[in-house]
Design a protein around this nucleic acid. Structure first.
Lengths: 234, 234
DNA sequence: CGTTTCATTAATGCATACATTAATGTCGCC
DNA sequence: GGCGACATTAATGTATGCATTAATGAAACG
């Protein structure tokens, strides 16, 4: 039993809305692969799974459809989105455009060390996850996510941050899936560190270029894995 | 009376859904200033305005909230989004990132003349709108919109196109409002033409830079107008 | 035996009823 | 006369009923 069902409750003091809870839980289940990509799920199934009534479930469907995590198939419930290699390309093209822009904006704001402490911590966590004899890939992925989410947040453009996170979420399962198939992300970790250095140095252009290169390399790596394994949808 | 209520009907042969119709009509009314920015509107008011029942209206609310055109205020209906100067800055930062990327992708696809004919036509229409003694600003704005929407469509990245159009829509009313306050968009028109030339020449970098400069100039112009007139929300 | 059509059924889209919450106004008390 | 508690009302959040549509299966026909 959780004492605070929803963060909105903390902020507003209002009763949590069932719609929000359904949305959050359903999204979590999609990201966690409880409903696997490509799956056709009936509205009634999710209603009973989440102990909710149809109205909040339908509203959650609409939100998640807009976020690209599922598709409402009229009269047939929903289909959980499955990413094709082409979708992955689209997603990485967008991230290669938006994320470097976010870094540039962040540098332009001249943040002090305290502001970007979360980024440094994320880098530390990534290194720690790879330090032992057996790398903790789940911990590394969580730290990587922290880095990118916070970078988006810190850029000062809320719309931009929201867009990055939406696209990032779309690729979440693909990242998790390829985590064990890729080489240990040592290079990726050091690239993050270099971006932080450039931010601290106030060098917008370098930060931008580094981040772009990081994203480009990540995209190529993912694409290569997908092709090598002949994966069609994930 | 329209014979085909929804394009989805044409594609699928299915009956048009009330939800889609409500969504489209409500969005139109927001973009057309029928519900002005900042307005608090009751769910019941829109229900009676659009002759629909509450369920489709609520689903349309969710979609439009995700698109940033309104905000659902729990227990108080919706508030039509009003853009502050800060919002305009956010929007232009995003367009300055995404649109040049779209041009780059388009050039990389090596389109032939037929494919980009719509862009040339849009340029022609812009020039025609400014040709007479009394410039037809509404026609110019429509042609400008055609240019940008089609450029996004042609880039080959559907997600990217959708994101551009969402942000573009958010700024629609602001563009319409400032249309009569800005100098005649002669320079803007020639800039479009230059972008098309670069696309045809297959020069991705030039096309990208031109588009970036175009967007940047447009943003500065809009910001200047907003500041000069002391506009706080629109 | 295969095919087509119709009846049955299940699932959804929409409409509406019910419960909950916030706002408004009134009455009583100070 | 002002202030506060309570009743009343209005509006929304949620649940559910009804109508429509698509799918399934059976039966009749070729």
């Amino acid at each position: 039993m959780n004492l605070v069902a929803d963060t909105a409750e903390l902020k507003t003091g209002r009763a949590p809305r069932s719609t929000d809870s359904v949305y959050a839980r359903l999204k979590q289940r999609i990201l966690d692969n409880h409903y696997p990509p490509g799956a056709q799920v009936l509205e009634s199934e999710i209603v009973s799974d989440l102990n909710a009534s149809r109205t909040p479930v339908r509203e959650a469907f609409v939100r998640l459809q807009q976020e690209g995590l599922l598709e409402i198939v009229p009269r047939h419930g929903v289909r959980i989105s499955a990413l094709s290699p082409g979708d992955m390309r689209e997603i990485y093209e967008i991230l290669m455009s938006l994320e470097p822009t976010a870094v540039e904006l962040l540098v332009a704001r001249r943040p002090d060390r305290a502001e970007i402490a979360v980024l440094v911590e994320a880098c530390d966590a990534m290194e720690a996850a790879l330090a032992g004899s057996a790398p903790d890939l789940a911990a590394w992925a969580a730290a990587d996510e922290m880095f990118h989410i916070n970078l988006a947040r810190l850029c000062g453009n809320k719309r931009l941050a929201a867009m990055i996170m939406t696209v990032w979420d779309q690729a979440h399962r693909a990242r998790m899936f390829t985590l064990t198939l890729r080489p240990p992300p040592v290079q990726s970790t050091s690239e993050h560190r270099a971006v932080v250095d450039a931010i601290l140095a106030g060098d917008a252009e370098r930060a931008r270029d580094l981040y772009f290169a990081h994203r480009k390399r990540g995209g190529s790596e993912l694409t290569a894995i997908i092709e090598r394994h002949g994966i069609q949808r994930l």
